[in-house]
């Protein structure tokens, strides 16, 4: 464990908690893409099946359980409890255009052709594009609530910190995972546009509205 991975995990946890609290306290999921949240629940489900097969550390197990629990709770709030506030008309990204290519790629490019490894690879690839429905929704509505931008900031920051963690681990441990790194770079690049708007607008107290 290194400081970059730890702050990355805490940033990820902060994003997940911010979103869940925002929806729960405001009793509304307006502006939130339910499709992205379903994709994240799928990412965690396919990645953390090893909860059933191996124990790595209390930290590892605890965080995985929290991530899975919060992501399913968020999906539940959006599609069941607070369904009336779900803005389906703007959440129209065709997720099948993500899942099918990602699923195919996971079969073609992986470290080992075993079920757990294929699912892990699918999860890594899917996570890199899972935010697209949310970013697409913001571009359609033309704006985002400030709390939603904080959620996106921490979510984008987490994988950027993981990139530094992988540089650190390559340098000090000779460890690297090309699949995770390439997907992580793609994932972080997708946030660059948002990061620019977040820094130039939200951090100056303005509302995030598009076109910029």
């Amino acid at each position: 464990m290194n400081i970059f991975r730890l702050t990355g995990d805490l940033s990820h946890l902060a994003a997940i908690i911010i979103l869940l609290l925002k929806i729960w306290k405001s009793r509304s999921c307006a502006g939130i893409s339910g499709k992205s949240q379903v994709l994240f629940a799928l990412v965690f489900t396919t990645r953390y099946l090893d909860l059933l097969t191996s124990f790595i550390s209390l930290y590892n197990t605890t965080m995985k359980v929290i991530y899975i629990g919060c992501s399913y709770a968020t999906v539940y709030l959006i599609y069941m409890k607070l369904k009336a506030t779900y803005d389906g008309n703007h959440d129209t990204f065709r997720v099948e255009f993500l899942i099918v290519p990602v699923g195919g790629l996971a079969f073609l490019v992986n470290h080992d052709f075993s079920p757990l490894e294929i699912l892990w690879t699918f999860s890594i690839y899917l996570e890199s594009v899972a935010i697209l429905p949310q970013l697409f929704m913001i571009s359609k509505t033309g704006e985002a609530e400030t709390i939603t931008t904080h959620y996106l900031f921490f979510l984008g920051l987490y994988r950027a910190l993981y990139l530094i963690n992988w540089i650190w681990r390559f340098y000090f441990e000779g460890f690297f995972d090309m699949i995770a790194i390439v997907a992580g770079v793609v994932q972080t690049i997708l946030y660059c546009d948002f990061f620019y708007l977040y820094v130039t607008k939200v951090l100056k107290g303005k509302k995030l509205s598009l076109p910029a």
């Binding site: 995990d9 090893d50 790595i56 991530y67 963690n165 460890f175 690297f176 995972d177 090309m178």
Partner: peptide
């Protein structure tokens, strides 16, 4: 090592 055998990252 090409990849850590143990998946110790989240």
């Amino acid at each position: 090592a090409f990849r850590q055998m143990e998946k110790d990252e989240l």
